Computed example of a mutant assay.
Amino acid sequence: MNINTFTKAKNVYKRLEEETPLSEKSLIKNGIKCENPKKKEPRAENSTVNDLNRGRVAIFIDGVNLFHAALQLGIEIDYLKLLCRLTAGSRLLRAFFYTTVDISRQTHTRPRPNEKQQGFLFWMRRNGYRVVTKEVQIADNSKKPNLNVEIAVDMITLTPYYDTAVLVSGDGDLTYAVDAVTSKGAKVEVVSLRTMTSDSLIDVADSFVDIDSIKHHIQKDSHSSYNYRALSNSNL
C-alpha cells in the first residue's frame, strides 16, 4: 500500500510538497528569513493544508526520534530549513525541541563530556527553538529514555493558544495526547519516517507527512555557513 496515495475520511496522507509555499517573512527573532520556494515548487490545486486554515502553529519535535529518522535516511538535518518548512508561512506560536543529555560518562577529568551537544543546543536556542532537556544515564538504564511526558504535557497545556500542532515523532506512546488535543478542537499534523511511525498515532492525527518525502528540503548542505561547535566557556 502506498502511504502517499491512500486516503480516508478522517485522515489525509499527503506529501508536504503539496502545501502552500513559504511566505517571505522572518520567523526568527534574530532576523533569519525562510527562503520562498515558490518558483521551484508550484502549489498543488488539491492542497488540503495551507496557511489559511492552519491558524497559529505550535511545533513539538522529538529530537531523539528525529535523529534516528535522519540516521536511517542518511542525512543531517538543517534545523533552520526544518523550522521554515514546518511553519510553512503560518503564524508560529513556539517551536519546542526535546532531547536527552547523557551524563553517564561524566568524570573528574571530563566534567562536561557533552560539550558538542551543548554547543548544538545553545545554537538551537539562539535560532528559534525552545529547548527542553532531560538528563539520563543511558549506560545504567535498560529502558529507552524519552521525553514523551514532557511533550504530552506541553501539547495539551498549550492547546488553547494554537490552532495546529505539528508533532515530529512517530512514537505510539503519544497517541493519547494527540487524541486529547484533537478532541479540544485543534488539528495535529504528524511528521515522521513512516517505517518508524505507529499506526495508532497516524489514526488519531489529522494528517501525516513522511519525512522521506521532504528530506531534500530539510537536509543540511555541505557548504552550510554555520556549525554546532563545542562551547569552551559556557554556563549551560
Rank of each mutant, 00 (worst) to 15 (best):
N2K: 12
N2G: 07
N2Y: 04
I3S: 09
I3A: 13
T5P: 03
T7A: 12
K8Q: 01
K8E: 00
K14M: 04
R15Q: 00
R15L: 03
E17P: 01
E18T: 00
E19L: 03
T20H: 15
S23I: 09
S26V: 14
L27M: 14
I28K: 09
I28L: 15
I28G: 02
I28E: 07
I28H: 04
K29Q: 15
K29M: 10
K29Y: 10
I32N: 12
I32R: 13
C34T: 03
E35S: 06
E35T: 00
N36L: 12
P37V: 09
K38R: 14
K38D: 05
K39H: 02
K39C: 06
K39E: 09
K40L: 10
R43F: 05
N46I: 05
N46D: 13
N50Q: 02
L52R: 12
N53G: 07
R54V: 04
V57C: 05
A58H: 03
I61G: 07
V64I: 14
V64K: 11
F67T: 06
A69H: 10
L71T: 09
Q72W: 03
L73H: 03
E76Y: 15
E76P: 03
I77V: 14
D78Q: 08
Y79D: 05
Y79T: 05
L80D: 01
L83R: 08
R85C: 03
A88M: 08
R91K: 14
L93T: 05
A95C: 01
F97M: 12
F97N: 12
F97D: 10
Y98R: 12
T100R: 13
D102R: 01
S104D: 00
S104W: 00
T107N: 02
R110P: 09
R110M: 08
P111N: 13
Q118P: 07
F122R: 00
R126C: 09
R126G: 07
N127E: 08
G128P: 09
V131I: 15
V132D: 02
K134T: 00
Q137A: 15
A139G: 00
D140E: 13
S142T: 15
P145C: 08
N148A: 00
I151W: 03
I151V: 04
A152R: 03
A152F: 11
V153Y: 13
T157P: 10
T157M: 11
T159I: 06
Y161P: 00
V166C: 02
L167W: 00
V168S: 11
V168K: 09
A177H: 12
A186E: 11
A186G: 13
E189R: 02
V190N: 04
V190E: 07
S192N: 01
S192F: 02
S192Y: 01
T197P: 08
S198T: 05
S198C: 04
S200D: 13
L201F: 04
I202F: 06
A205V: 12
A205Q: 06
D206L: 15
D206K: 14
S207M: 13
S207G: 11
F208A: 11
D210P: 08
D210F: 06
D210C: 09
I211F: 02
I211T: 01
I211K: 00
D212H: 02
I218W: 08
Y226L: 06
Y226N: 07
A230M: 01
S234L: 02
L236V: 06
L236D: 09
L236Y: 12
